[in-house]
């Protein structure tokens, strides 16, 4: 990065970036209005949702380098809080979100303190075990809907239910929350916390010996991450209006957060968004094209593309981009 900055004058480079960023932002805001196809609009909303959960995961998994494969724990808390609020008290689903977030933060402290001591795969496995525990407990608790699951309002009662026919409002709501999350991530990465997390990810023992309170900062990252993941769960529940143990706490969902981030580039600001923007449409389009055959070809194609990317760009698409930049810089020299 700094090596390149010395090669090109900083000011025009920054301007170029700003113009590019502004154009990308406008494109993101405007494209759903130009597409009349409601299905594509919904895919757009789902991209935002997947980008949200992957970006939230990115704080812990990417920036802090702690590969959690149990983030669905927090997602499920948010989704269930929303719909249980409706089931028990007839609240608008989104009103449950703060409770989901509070519960997730509490869980993150209880769960994070012991597990963040664990190294590498042991940490990943512990997070999986915790998420599975949550899934089994919910499945066996009739008061939480048991195996049947819980539903939102069958038909919208008021605007507060955030239940829309068009996917567009969801797209913009999810997008707005994503913007807040990305802004926070950007700010965090510039500051002391980003510096510490980079140190921890690089070489935790060295960072500790230099006096970085690693445990503490990993926990901070987990807290923010859990909070946003929970909010994602609440937003999901608001849109879909139903959650059961598998769709709220299923391990596949955790894995999808990880692969969206990994695909775009973990530990980069826009990596998860890029990953989600590739994976979700890929999944939906392959399903729309081949799903009805009943031959499973949907997942053969989807899986093969994931394999292909991991084979040729193990560091995700961010790596491809930096390789390309390096190549351009070399050529400019």
């Amino acid at each position: 990065m700094s090596a390149q900055a010395t090669q090109t004058p900083a000011a025009p480079r920054l301007a170029g970036r700003l113009i590019f960023g502004a154009l990308a932002l406008i494109a993101l805001l405007v494209w759903p209005l130009l597409v009349e196809n409601v299905f594509y609009q919904r895919v757009g909303a789902l991209v935002m949702l997947a980008a949200l959960s992957a970006s939230a995961w990115n704080l812990v998994g990417g920036y802090a380098g702690q590969i959690s494969i149990g983030h669905v724990l927090y997602f499920g808390c948010g989704a269930y809080a929303s719909l249980l609020g409706f089931t028990w008290f007839e609240w608008a689903p989104i009103l449950g979100a703060p409770f989901g977030i509070a519960l997730s933060l509490l869980l993150a402290v209880i769960v994070g303190t012991p597990t963040l001591r664990l190294k590498g795969h042991y940490f990943s496995m512990a997070t999986i075990a915790l998420a599975e525990l949550a899934r089994i407990i919910v499945t066996n608790s009739p008061v939480l809907g048991g195996g049947v699951g819980v539903s939102g309002p069958a038909l919208p009662r008021s605007m507060a239910d955030l239940s829309f026919i068009s996917p567009l409002p969801y797209y913009y709501i999810f997008g707005a929350v994503l913007a807040v999350l990305l802004a926070f991530t950007w700010w965090m990465n510039l500051g002391r916390m980003g510096f510490y997390l980079r140190a921890i990810r690089g070489q935790e023992r060295a960072a500790r010996s230099l006096g970085v309170p690693a445990q503490c900062y990993k926990l901070y990252a987990l807290l923010v991450s859990a909070g946003f993941t929970s909010l994602t769960g609440s937003l999901y529940a608001t849109m879909v209006g139903f959650v059961d143990p598998d769709s709220g706490f299923g391990i596949l969902l955790s894995v999808k957060m990880v692969i969206a981030a990994a695909l775009g580039g973990a530990g980069t600001l826009f990596g998860p968004l890029v990953g989600a923007a590739i994976l979700v449409p890929l999944e939906e389009v392959t399903n729309a094209m081949f799903g009805g055959d009943g031959t499973g070809i949907t997942y053969v194609v989807y899986g093969a593309i994931i394999v292909f990317i991991s084979r040729f760009a193990p560091g995700g698409l961010a790596e491809v981009l930096s390789r390309f930049q390096a190549w351009r810089a070399r050529r400019a020299n």
């Binding site: 299905f39 919904r42 598998d246 399903n287």
Partner: peptide, 16 residues
């Protein structure tokens, strides 16, 4: 024919 993949959200996508 559409595949709902055993997922409540996918069922909605496909219905839509």
């Amino acid at each position: 024919m559409a595949d709902q993949q055993g997922n409540p959200s996918v069922a909605q996508n496909q219905a839509l």
